[in-house]
Amino acid sequence: MTTRRTFISASAVGGISLLLAKEVSTKERLNEELYKIIQKVQEHLFPEGTLLPSAHLFGATVFLEETVYHSSYDKDIRAFVLDGAKELKNMHKELFLKYDEKQMESALRKFEKTKMGDNWLSRVMILSIEALLSDPIYGGNFQELGWKALETTGGFPRPTSRYVAL
């Protein structure tokens, strides 16, 4: 029905998901290196100069970090998001953060060919789209640029707090 099962089995191949799950339960932020890796990926998925605002502009990575650490977010998927970033680091070492656009394209398309890579890129894409189009109260969709780019808007009334914290 849904693909959470596949995420878990795919990440278990790496053998680090359990470790990471423990790690994230005591931390509330991504470590700087993983943050930068995810940021670089998101900026490649949503670059400048398209019909949509760039990941940098709509606040993709800040949103992703706050979202995956919120209590409403599935802890297995949170671990998987970290897992994938760690996997990219293992594959490319410190070179990853220095790649130009062409090298990034090649690295991510190669990653996409693995089961884990495909699932992970899809998950990061979903989190990025959530940042692009959720209510700006969640820290993404800067100045409603996501809605404006797609000639849409959210419904009314708009939320006045995150996650219906009444």
């Binding site: 959720s134 209510d135 419904g155 009334p157 708009r158 996650y163």
Partner: peptide, 16 residues
């Protein structure tokens, strides 16, 4: 009065 059209909360997370 408290309901909103918050897609992230109502449709994408286990809030209710």
């Amino acid at each position: 009065e408290e309901f909103s059209k918050d897609e992230l909360a109502y449709c994408r997370r286990d809030i209710v």
